Simulated assay, not measured.
Amino acid sequence: MKVYTLKTKQFLPISISEAWDFFSSPRNLKDITPSHMRFDIKYISGSEKMYAGQIIRYKLQPVPGVPVSWTTEITHVNEPHFFVDEQRFGPYSLWHHQHRFKEVDGGVEMEDEVNYAIPLGWLGQLANWLFVGKKVKAIFDYRFKVLEERFN
């Protein structure tokens, strides 16, 4: 199984508590996901406050007309410094997404690191090369732009 990694870093001129409040709320995912993907949260376990073990189920359309169900678990939480979400059921063989927040002069530095794998062996590798890798990067590019507009 080939594992791919995408890392992003962004400065936001907000406090670490503001960053945490925004990014630790699953409800805000829709705001930072391209609208053409039709992101829709179906279920959040427990309270709205993030905790290790929390389950979030949603549907989206990564490709127009192809709905996908996705279930993630919040596996690690160290408020306000980092949290990890991992796919439990969905399109990937592996999805491990680390969100890190660090106070810096004038705001917060936010880092994302996604490690993912696609099923189907060499066909999955071809799919990543042709479009999946580009799609994942485009989603994070979109997030970067939306966050720039929202917090600057």
Rank of each mutant, 00 (worst) to 15 (best):
122 W>E: 02
95 W>G: 01
126 L>D: 05
111 E>R: 13
80 P>K: 02
97 H>I: 12
134 K>Q: 13
109 E>P: 02
107 G>L: 08
97 H>W: 09
92 Y>C: 04
129 W>R: 15
107 G>Y: 10
128 N>K: 04
102 K>Y: 08
128 N>I: 00
83 F>I: 02
119 P>S: 07
110 M>Y: 13
101 F>S: 08
84 V>Y: 12
119 P>D: 02
94 L>N: 05
91 P>N: 07
77 V>C: 06
106 G>E: 11
118 I>N: 00
91 P>C: 03
107 G>S: 09
130 L>N: 03
130 L>S: 03
120 L>Q: 08
81 H>N: 15
128 N>C: 04
99 H>S: 09
117 A>R: 07
135 K>F: 08
98 Q>L: 15
118 I>Q: 01
120 L>A: 13
78 N>C: 03
92 Y>P: 05
93 S>R: 13
131 F>D: 00
77 V>G: 04
111 E>I: 06
120 L>G: 01
80 P>E: 02
112 D>M: 07
78 N>S: 12
93 S>M: 01
131 F>L: 11
98 Q>G: 00
111 E>P: 00
131 F>T: 05
97 H>S: 10
90 G>C: 07
80 P>A: 05
101 F>H: 05
104 V>W: 07
109 E>I: 13
89 F>S: 09
115 N>S: 11
77 V>S: 03
91 P>Q: 12
90 G>I: 05
101 F>L: 15
87 Q>S: 06
101 F>W: 11
109 E>M: 14
108 V>A: 09
129 W>P: 00
106 G>R: 11
104 V>E: 12
